[in-house]
């Protein structure tokens, strides 16, 4: 080790992880030869590696179940994921009984209204986002009708936010039940899609009874939901975009639905 670079912690890790060139590995070994304490530590690290490999290594040689064959998965894109099946089944039940007890809320002693709304928004997203022909009830091409119909039913002026700057165009919308105890009436779901066929939904209801302002960003299963409420509306933006993109879109929706005293009314 006359003119070798000093030995760092990273070198020691790289030695046991086989990430050094043979020359450097030899230098590190030589360095260790004069340091029994350090050498004992490195020996223990190696045994850790062996133990981990013995514990889990064999899994990689097991036969792979067909449900994990990417070729089959790519060929049947409509096949629901396990998680989706669960969500969709829950959504069907919820819709059938008009909201019922939130599937996600089962572990809470008293699910809050906002929690019920977020649940409803996520389930509605999961249910309709996979649809191709029936993704929406009224298409964006019939925008005037869409706006007046949803605004009348939700009893709030609903102007679909413009998300074109983020690459998302309005597909259309549909009317949905809110949840069982909803005194705030039904919900409007607006669906957006980008060129990559990724979809984001915006779930809007009239304000909850308490009319409180609140906001929340949360993730359930693989879906992100951005929820906020003010004294006029509640809104939940749902999607599974990369986090930054999701937040940017949610922010746009928020800005457009809140800061428009004439149009948005929210």
């Amino acid at each position: 080790m006359t003119n070798a670079a000093p030995i760092s912690e990273t070198d020691l890790h790289a030695l046991v992880d086989d990430q050094l060139t043979p020359e450097r590995a030899a230098e590190v070994e030589a360095w260790l030869a004069g340091r029994p304490d350090k050498a004992a530590e490195i020996a223990n690290w190696r045994r850790q590696n062996e133990a981990l490999d013995a514990l889990f290594g064999p899994v990689a040689s097991e036969a792979v179940p067909t449900r994990l064959d990417p070729h089959l998965m790519a060929r049947s894109p409509a096949r629901p994921r396990i998680a989706w099946t669960r969500l969709a089944a829950a959504a069907v039940v919820l819709l059938a009984i008009g909201g019922g007890i939130g599937w996600f809320g089962r572990s809470y002693t008293l699910p809050s209204s906002s929690d019920e709304l977020i649940t409803a928004a996520i389930e509605a997203h999961a249910l309709y986002v996979r649809e191709k022909r029936h993704a929406v009830e009224v298409a964006a091409s019939d925008r005037d009708h869409l706006v007046s119909w949803l605004s009348n039913r939700v009893e709030r002026p609903i102007t679909p936010p413009d998300l074109a700057a983020d690459g998302f165009n309005l597909v259309g919308g549909r009317l949905l039940p809110g949840y069982e105890d909803a005194t705030n009436g039904p919900a409007a779901q607006l669906m957006y899609e980008n060129a990559a066929a990724e979809r984001v939904t915006v779930f809007i209801t009239a304000a909850l009874d308490d009319r409180s302002s609140t906001y929340e960003f949360l993730t359930r299963k693989a879906l992100d939901a951005f929820y906020w409420a003010n004294d006029r509306i509640t809104c939940t933006v749902v999607g599974d975009l990369p986090e930054d993109q999701m937040k940017a879109v949610a922010r746009k929706v928020y800005q457009q639905l809140t800061w428009r005293p004439d149009g948005g009314g929210a």
Partner: peptide
């Protein structure tokens, strides 16, 4: 574990253009 892998693959296949 396999559920997790399945979720991962489905997402990867869906988002391949990303």
């Amino acid at each position: 574990a396999d559920d997790l892998v399945q979720d991962c693959l489905e997402r990867a296949i869906r988002k391949r253009n990303l």
